[in-house]
Amino acid sequence: MRFIVGLIALGIFSGEAVAQTASLPQRHVVHIEAFAFQPPQIIVSPGDTIVWVNQDIVPHFISIAEGQWQSPIIEEGQSWEMVVDQTGSHAYICVFHPKMMGAFATN
C-alpha cells in the first residue's frame, strides 16, 4: 500500500503522467463558433478523437473528404466526435455553410 501511495506521489499514476504518454489516444476539440472552425487546422495521430462542438445558434453539418465521413446535424450546444482511423490530410466543410472550412492531418 505504501508503495502505491508512493508511486502516486511521484506522479507515475497521475493523469499528467498518462497524458504525457505519446502512444495513448488524444482528444482534440474543434470549436464551431462564429461560422468558423477553431482551430481551423489540427495535427492528430491515428487513433485520436476529434470532437466538434457547435457553439453557434444554428445547426451545422460536417462533411469530411468530400463526403467520405459525415456528421449528423449538430445542433446548438451539441457535439460530434470521430476517431481518426486513416492517415493523410483531410479537408472538411459545413455542408450548410460551405464557406466554413477546416482540415486535419495525421503526423
Partner: peptide, 13 residues
C-alpha cells in the same frame, strides 16, 4: 432550405 433551418433556429431562440 438554409433559410428555413437557420431562421427557425434563430426564431426559436
Amino acid at each position: 432550405e438554409l433559410m428555413i433551418r437557420d431562421h427557425t433556429a434563430v426564431n426559436n431562440k
